[in-house]
Design a binder for these strands. Structure first.
Lengths: 336, 336
DNA sequence: GTGAAAGCGCTAACAC
DNA sequence: GTGTTAGCGCTTTCAC
């Protein structure tokens, strides 16, 4: 048994294909009786319209793409959930693409979806991305894009972010209040807005507390666990080692804990730790972890809502605005 | 600037649309010179074929669907990564659908992709799913499906699983060797093969060690954290409470740890814990967690490979076989 | 080796 | 309120 087409269904029901099409799109030109008849036929013969034909003709695919660096990460998997739940409600389909933090892949992906495959894009840029030509190419094709978390500042569209500067400032302040004198900030990308905002919040708090510049320590980490392990080993082995750490990404948590274990550094006794993280195991870590928890699901939902609203209004120029959903500093044992 | 079509490109290059189509599909009927010319034009005018038109005509979409219960879960997010990485290499697109453990949603989703939207499906069934009519409907449309982890036993196709029975047996044995006398098994779904396999492995190990039936404790948990919390509270408050726990799903880990904290039960002193889990925070939990680690990424990769191989051969009847990729028991402090 | 033309399954404009 | 028909952008015979 293959697919039944609109033509075959029309023959069986003794109506024209136009009538079926209109009935299914709930056109008001069709009588209630006919609609009922068509619907019954659809059920009986198990008819589903071919989306390729429909998309080709309508010039809309009812599909969006979500382009993110990674998915095995609590922030992105939760955000994805927020997006998918809304898409499912509205009858949209979701294509997922992972960039693995590669600008090259990101470019290939956007190029691959620029022609009719999707109606819109939700995106969090890779840590390598610093130029937006590939994004412009999408918008030139009238494909709206909404950023979440890692945004492209220069692109004029909606950006759903959290209060990175503020929450990093507060996190730093929390460590200072706990008596830290030498706080290190672990960064990853130099390009990413969020990374820089977090760094700036950190630096601002230090300045306000008159921490001298020699105790401003920004450590550049990478995407490779082994490399990061070595870097942190070095950091925590030095004479003048930090007594507090703010990690700008979740993935660093394990590395920090493991290095401390290896070097016999007690958390929080000798080192207090805060991570930007959505790990739901944070409360049961050893010690439980103080986190800056980002509203991942909510950010996903919000970004998706904005995009879908624009798509449904065919208003493809999305207002250039920043929607800020605050993060929460959850204090736990690692900063006691 | 809108999309450039094959027709427009043909005019600019002074060739027919057929020539362009053939050149792009690398047909041998086209001369090298013409191919070069077409490719140059494609680059110059930034032409991308419209996938809807192409799919409609070719009757293949170069797209697969992945249908899973959940994504904010280390097993599924890692499996998704395995799948996506292969798909990206082969030029396939990946639609993601979450069932949220609902059979109803699962049915709607499969119904929605049965007509030309996808060439194949990778799936892990919901915990509610016990009948396979919706899956049969897909296969009647010649859409191949490969299961991974949570398989539909009765459907004749490839199934990529881990050695659930064996690994649960080993986990139980490990607890017995550690001196546990009363081991509880935390189950979720009654329908899921994996759940029953794991339960059977557990029971078999108990039998072989002549543990009397009153110490065989299978606890039915749910998808709701609050409910599970109550159930575990009750379990661990009873006079004759277990001294070992095997949790069949990752999500229960936090609940177990939190209940123990609340009740003042020491892990591993008073209760030893093993979870089927891929948490990469397992080593840094308090105490670090003994896990049955499933080869999630590998399972995703394998399932995807089988599906793509079938698609490329147009051999849509996939051999009914079970590919078993073993899990690993990683011993840590929680069972010391 | 290249081009003309039919047609994939649908929607929308227009006719009745 | 329903039907006829053109055509979305591509691929694939089939001529030449």
């Amino acid at each position: 048994m293959g697919d039944i087409t609109i033509k075959e269904l029309a023959q069986k029901l003794n109506v024209s294909i136009a009538t079926i099409s209109k009935a299914l799109n709930d056109s008001h030109e069709i009588s209630a009786a006919t609609k009922e008849k068509v619907l019954a036929g659809v059920r009986k013969y198990n008819y589903t319209p071919n989306p390729n034909a429909s998309s080709l003709r309508k010039k809309r695919s009812n599909t969006i793409a979500i382009v993110i660096p990674e998915v095995a990460d609590s922030f992105f998997s939760q955000a994805l959930k927020g997006i998918e739940s809304i898409a499912q409600n509205l009858g949209y389909h979701v294509l997922i693409y992972l960039t693995y933090e590669s600008f090259y892949k990101e470019r290939l992906i956007l190029n691959d979806i620029k022609n009719g495959r999707v109606d819109g894009v939700l995106m969090s840029i890779s840590s390598e991305t610093s130029n937006s030509l590939h994004i412009k190419a999408l918008r030139d094709r009238n494909i709206p894009i909404v950023f979440f978390d890692r945004v492209m500042e220069e692109t004029e569209t909606a950006k759903v972010v959290t209060d990175d500067y503020q929450s990093s400032y507060k996190a730093t302040q929390h460590l200072l209040e706990r008596g830290c004198q030498h706080i290190a900030y672990l960064s990853t990308s130099k390009h990413l807005m969020i990374s820089n905002e977090r760094k700036d919040g950190y630096l601002q708090a230090l300045k306000e507390h008159h921490i001298k510049a020699s105790k401003h320590t920004v450590v550049q980490c990478s995407n490779h666990a082994e490399y990061n392990f070595t870097v942190l080993q070095k950091l925590l082995q030095q004479e003048d080692r930090p007594d507090g750490i703010i990690a700008s990404i979740e993935r660093l948590t394990s590395t920090i804990y493991l290095v401390c274990k290896e070097l016999g550094i007690a958390i929080p006794g000798q080192l207090k730790v805060i991570t930007f993280s959505n790990l739901d195991t944070a409360p049961i870590l050893s010690p439980s972890l103080t986190t800056v928890s980002q509203p991942a699901f909510e950010m996903g939902r919000t970004a998706a809502s904005i995009l879908f609203k624009a798509l449904q209004k065919k208003k493809l120029n999305i207002k250039n605005e920043k929607i800020v959903i605050p993060s929460v500093l959850v204090k736990r044992e690692s900063t006691n």
